[in-house]
């Protein structure tokens, strides 16, 4: 599918501009393996969307396209009106806040505070503004009192929330979470959901955790074999047994949706 006919969007925070606009995205790895085929995905400001799909469907590949870590072989990604291209990669990376699956990959500084300051400092924020950003981000995830601890001494749930704060402090246009509920105990899982629901930001959440998708995201997109195979209200998609089965997805034991 090709959607190149659309005019270039103005690079401003215009409400008419989508937070994320993926148009006809193709991607093949250098060894020739095709990972994405003509992916189209438009996410409006303030939307919360779950990206569902079996292992190897291309979810993580798609996420790495969003901030230009991987470059597409065809098509285009536009973030808040700004195309993901070399000259403004830095601004794109500020706008797309990716929270990686393993917080130990994300948190690399000796203290929580420094880690949360790392992103905004890279984007040129300094001094009082930086301090205020760090405080606000830690406050938003309920980790303000742990600012001077080492990430090593935090629990899994706390680390996950700090990882979220390290991205929130960059003030992103869209938050992208890779498997946010993995390895969390039920309480930490619920606490993270409460934090996410309280954020009021555009959200794209990659997950296998279908009940979590239902709880957090009114809309879901199913990816399989590098294509988008379904896009609609989460509740309707999760009630479609045939579609779920066709793409190796299923609700946990005991769950049914009417």
């Amino acid at each position: 599918m090709s959607a190149h006919t659309e005019p270039a969007s103005p690079p401003a925070a215009d409400p008419a501009v989508a937070s994320l606009d993926v148009r006809g995205l193709d991607f093949a790895y250098p060894d020739g393996t095709t990972a994405l085929h003509g992916v189209d995905l438009r996410i409006e400001p303030g939307e919360r969307v779950a990206l569902l799909g079996p292992n190897g469907a291309g979810k993580t590949t798609l996420v790495l396209q969003l901030n230009g870590i991987l470059a597409p072989t065809g098509g285009e990604v536009v973030v808040g009106g700004l195309p993901v291209r070399k000259p403004h990669l830095q601004e794109v990376r500020r706008r797309v806040g990716i929270v990686f699956q393993d917080p130990d990959d994300q948190l690399f500084m000796p203290t929580v505070r420094e880690d949360v300051a790392f992103g905004p400092a890279n984007f040129g924020v300094r001094g009082d503004e930086l301090t205020a950003r760090v405080e606000a981000a830690l406050e938003a995830v309920g980790m303000a009192e742990h600012a001077d601890r080492s990430p090593l001494h935090l629990s899994g749930g706390q680390r996950r929330r700090v990882a979220l704060a390290t991205v929130l402090s960059c003030d992103p246009e869209i938050l992208v979470l890779d498997e946010p509920s993995s390895n969390l105990d039920p309480v930490a899982r619920r606490e993270l959901a409460e934090v996410l629901l309280g954020l009021d930001r555009t959200l794209l959440m990659v997950t296998h955790d279908l009940p979590y998708a239902l709880q957090l995201c009114p809309r879901s997109v199913v990816v399989d074999g590098g294509r988008i195979v379904a896009d609609g209200p989460t509740r309707a998609l999760l009630a479609d047994d045939g579609m779920l089965r066709a793409h190796r997805l299923e609700l946990p034991f005991g769950f049914t949706l009417a």
Partner: peptide
């Protein structure tokens, strides 16, 4: 592999090769 993932995560937060100095 962890090193690679850490590097990707750092790039995603705008790392350009030098540590930002905090005052």
């Amino acid at each position: 592999e962890r090193g690679e993932r850490v590097h990707l995560a750092m790039l995603s937060r705008g790392w350009t090769g030098t540590m930002p100095t905090t005052g």
